[in-house]
Design a protein around this nucleic acid. Structure first.
Lengths: 238, 238
DNA sequence: TATAAATACTTGTATAGACAAGTTATAATT
DNA sequence: AATTATAACTTGTCTATACAAGTATTTATA
């Protein structure tokens, strides 16, 4: 498991606290150790701690109150596709199953959904894959992912069955999703979606076109996600 | 125009730069003055400048590149309801017209869309209003807003025709939206939406339930927004 | 005992400086 | 002239400190 050589301290603090909230060693409703105590715990200064906490606040893991402390809110509920990088981390792997519709394969491309591509991206081609994802055995997400075909050895042969795409990118290729932009719209299900979601013609479906930025400059991951919101709604913080 | 007594320096810097990007005195594609230069300009230190820039990065106004500088991206395109507090600021007042369907009035409430209320909120009652908003003369948003009826003198008699609700809250009542959570789903238009959006039965419509946090503790603004995404899609950064 | 004042905490804001790391322009070298 | 090294400038990370402002606890007072 190759690790990035130099991970900033605030990032490590962020990951650590986030993990401890996820595994409930910091319990929902309780107060986080004070910023001063966290300084001692992680051997960093307060600005570093605060930078880590800022990210946790923004993602909804904690809520701060001046004079009181930081309240642990727990893992953001719902399906946090709007604010979290992937669906896996938001709803937990227990409930999420993945069926590969199109295995990762190299394709040519001239555009990525509604996003335009640079000449360099067009030349490279892309790794294309389609997945259908089940929440509690109900098909809820149908997503198409396109990644520029740039030096990702063995990528197409990897298994994505029950793993998060973003986990694989991070662990094996040191690629982290830093943020991105997305378009959201509602429209009627086409034949493909009718088939996979088992819904009638023109059944309302949510669509997201996403362009995700990574820690590699000019390396973007594109995805188009269709979502059946009959039983599960998307959730996000802002 | 009453002003909050003590606005932090980083906030003023943020507002100033944001305004200058909006009115294009910082032009899209150009580099922002370096952090050092901004320090001199606004008479603050680099951490303060960086805190302001962090917010601008997060909202998509600028993009930073280590060693190079901060590139002005311009006002985030599309309809930024996902990340910005209101629709007005995102698409500009030129294209946005508002028709009041239900004037602000005091009502009782037991819940706010899918969000549960505290006993205190229930006792207070709420100020209720419905608006239909047009983008380039097309009805695109239908929103219901509910605000706890807490000491907002003259609120119900104010005009909301062509002003942002959030501007009024900020300027007249010193209430700022700090963030919030939202649910997003797609479903078919009901009779009300068919009428206002001029769409057929079960036409796919986007729905957002939003709970917005303010700078007053335990004071939340609730809104439900329906959106016809046939011609305009929602846009957001994450 | 009940109330009020002082105190010890918490997070919020801001300063001043240091070095690392990436980019660009300049100067030196071949 | 083209290439390489240097320097200058950019943002990224981090330290150490100070005071303001909000909250909770303790202590002093009535």
């Amino acid at each position: 498991m190759p690790l990035a050589s130099k991970i900033p301290a605030y990032r490590i603090v962020y990951e650590t606290i986030r993990t401890r909230i996820q595994d409930e060693s910091f319990q929902q409703g309780t107060l986080l150790p004070s910023e001063h105590d966290l300084c001692v715990l992680y051997h960093v200064t307060r600005p570093t701690i605060r930078k880590a906490l800022d990210a946790l606040v923004h993602e909804g893991y904690i809520k701060k109150h001046q004079g009181k402390g930081s309240v642990v809110m727990g893992v953001p509920k719902g399906i946090g596709i709007l604010s979290i990088t992937g669906t896996t981390s938001a709803i937990g792997q227990h409930n999420l199953k993945t069926r590969i519709i199109v295995k990762p394969e190299v394709r040519t491309w001239t555009s990525a959904f509604s996003f335009s591509l640079t000449e360099h991206e067009k030349e490279l081609g892309c790794i294309y894959m389609e997945r259908l994802r089940y929440v509690n055995d109900n098909p809820v997400f149908y997503d198409i992912t396109m990644i520029p075909n740039l030096n990702l050895p063995r990528f197409t042969s990897r298994s994505f069955e029950n793993k998060s795409l973003f986990d694989i990118l991070r662990k094996h290729y040191q690629i982290q999703i830093m943020g991105g932009e997305q378009q959201i719209m509602a429209h009627g299900a086409d034949k493909t979606l009718q088939k996979y979601f088992r819904v009638p013609k023109d059944h309302p479906v949510l669509q997201l076109n996403r362009r995700m930025e990574t820690n590699r400059v000019n390396f973007y991951v594109y995805s188009q996600v269709f979502c059946n919101t009959d039983d599960y709604v998307l959730y996000g913080r802002f």
